[in-house]
Amino acid sequence: MTAEILARADGVTRRYGDVVALDDITLDVRAGELVGLLGPNGAGKSTLINLFTGLRRPTSGTVELFGGSPLDPARRRRVGMTPQDTGLPAALRVGECVDFVSAHFTTSVSRGALLERFGLSGLERRQIGGLSGGQKRRLAVALAFAGDPRLVFLDEPTTGLDVEARRTLWAGVRAFHEDGGTVLLTSHYLEEIEALARRVVVVGQGRVLADDSVEAVRGMAGVRRVSVTAADVPALPGVLGTERDGERVHLITSDADELVRELVRTGAPFSGLEVRLTSLEEAFLAITARRAA
């Protein structure tokens, strides 16, 4: 038996003027899943979340939340979302802010338990303007859980947090998931997605590049970058992406040995051969660039 679909994007395209932020995205999030949306800045992650939470409408295609339009407030009753921490109302106290958000929901969790889960116990009476950056970030994430949601959207939840604060936050998200909650989280760190998610959706330039298990996507972390100085590089098999940086040409490949062998075989002149492990982000950028070309 397959679990109920809580959020669905079907052939969704979203443009801002001439810029295509999302290009024919299709994605389902089922009950109980913890899905990581991985991609560089500008890949369209936040736009997708804004569509799911009813802040924006798709240019074409359909977006569904609990089987209806996200623009209908009733569909958002069991949904949680994180505000940008820079925008929390500075004059309110922590407890007031949580109560204010909870007041919008028919169900809500106990304030004390919520604050405890995100390491904010004892700060109820503090004004938000006086919190540290990490505390604001944790409060912003905690607000997503205030209405006892079934599905939460976490957009870059740990950006700018130190290691310890990040772990506290991860523990909070994990606890929610273990109780049966569904999470769609965006990040540009594989480490974060690995720590939390089972399923990874890699997006780049508005498209889904990969939708697979963490293990499968992790395999891409073994991708290597072969760099040479050459005027012209012939077409080679197994090249995932090519970047040119002045005289240097960087070739992204999952099999560096075979690539170098092929390069020598073509007889093309080159110098300064260098092979190194790429970061996942570099690999994605190269793949994205190639698909866009």
Partner: peptide
């Protein structure tokens, strides 16, 4: 001008 405003629009109320 504050990001809090669009956040409130995501809460389940018109």
């Amino acid at each position: 001008a504050q990001p809090w405003d669009p956040y409130i629009r995501t809460l389940p109320a018109g």
